[in-house]
């Protein structure tokens, strides 16, 4: 005799409920109660949830049916989704694989000077460059060079794609209020969704052996700030200057390339900096789905309780993060200097 029997009786639904009664599987709590010999005495006034209602009316679904339904629906849609998404995302796999291969194939005595040179040209700051050289050499010294390069190559590819996709999306968003209204909730969702949750649908869609699986997860997570800040940057461009551009007869494309993008550049660069940092955060979590790199060692540290391995890898990640942040921030400051302040 369950709590809500009376209610269904009062509505005259007894007949309808009775037909499918009692074939629902028992919940774990019920099983335990049965095993211990006590009656299934729930709370005095249970919440009318699906499971509790099911006890009185077998024709109502249990919550486990709901989750099962979602899973079935997803599985049913999978072949169709896969046939569209697979070819679309295949280049991502190739890019990631070839980047991983290239970073591994280039010998360290070429790679390290190249990275230091990149740091110098981006930042033009002696301090930053020396710090970059020191950090990479330190990582190499403790035999973390290979994994660090794997992480770095994934970040390069994913940040590059995020910027290539994110900046045009941000521009389109700044031009159309309608598009902004549509995209803002999606961006909010991408940003608030716990990073692990990204992986669930992706694991279903792609096989764990494919590198695009983690590539997509990283890009989805990291693309948000560059889209947002491109949009914001263009919207914040001084309206007086835009009016002047219009008054002198600039076309929309001239306005975009000669006025809006240059003036929004500091904001866009701040977005790129955030995108880099977020892809680093995600590449560590993506080691759960076979992303190579420092994250794998962190995972090993957790799984096997190898404290030292985890901590060294963790420090490696921090070093990478600081390198990427300092270099991109120094580059940002340089952009800001040449274009706005003097």
């Amino acid at each position: 005799m369950a709590f809500y029997d009376g209610m269904f009786k009062a509505f005259g639904l007894e007949q309808w409920c009775g037909e499918g009664n009692s074939d629902a599987p028992l919940s774990m709590a019920d099983l335990l109660a049965k095993a211990s010999g006590k009656g299934a005495d729930g709370p005095i006034f249970p919440f009318p949830s699906l499971d509790n209602l099911n006890k009185s009316c077998g024709n109502l679904s249990q919550t486990r049916d709901l989750t099962k339904g979602i899973e079935d629906g997803f599985l049913a849609a999978k072949p169709a989704l896969k046939s569209v998404l697979d070819p679309l995302t295949q280049p991502l796999s190739w890019m990631l694989d070839s980047a991983l291969w290239a970073f591994a194939a280039i010998p360290w005595f070429i790679m390290i000077p190249v990275l230091v040179a990149v740091a110098w040209f981006a930042s033009r700051s002696k301090g930053v460059t020396i710090f970059v050289a020191f950090s990479i050499l330190l990582l190499a010294f403790v035999d973390h060079y290979d994994v660090a390069m794997q992480t770095l190559s994934i970040i390069f590819v994913c940040t590059g794609i995020s910027v290539l996709l994110g900046v045009p999306i941000g521009i389109a968003m700044s031009k159309s209020d309608k598009l902004e209204r549509v995209l803002v909730p999606i961006l909010d969702l991408l940003q608030t969704l716990p990073t692990f949750v990204y992986l669930i649908p992706l694991i279903f869609l792609f096989s764990v052996t494919e590198s695009k699986l983690y590539g997509i997860a990283i890009i989805l997570y990291a693309i948000v700030p560059v889209v947002r800040l491109t949009n914001l940057g263009i919207r914040l461009v001084d309206q007086d200057v835009i009016e002047a551009a219009n008054a002198f007869g600039m076309s929309s494309s001239q306005k975009l390339t000669k006025v809006e993008l240059p003036l929004a550049l500091p904001n866009i660069m701040a977005g790129v900096n955030q995108t880099i940092m977020m892809s680093l955060a995600m590449v560590v979590i993506a080691s759960l789905v076979s992303a190579p790199g420092l994250g794998v060692n962190v995972l090993r540290g957790i799984r096997n309780l190898e404290l030292g391995v985890g901590i060294v890898a963790g420090i490696g990640i921090v070093l990478l993060a600081v390198i990427l942040d300092r270099v991109s921030k120094a580059a940002l400051q340089r952009v800001d200097m040449t274009h706005v302040k003097h």
């Binding site: 002198f248 240059p262 040449t338």
Partner: peptide
């Protein structure tokens, strides 16, 4: 656009110069 380029020019209260361009580039904008 043609008439704005060729027939009318405008001077603004808040100057509305391009901050990322030099004075010469600003003056040459039209």
């Amino acid at each position: 656009r043609a008439i704005r380029q060729n027939k009318m020019s405008m001077v603004f209260q808040k100057f509305a110069l391009l901050p990322h361009r030099t004075i010469a580039q600003n003056a040459a904008m039209p």
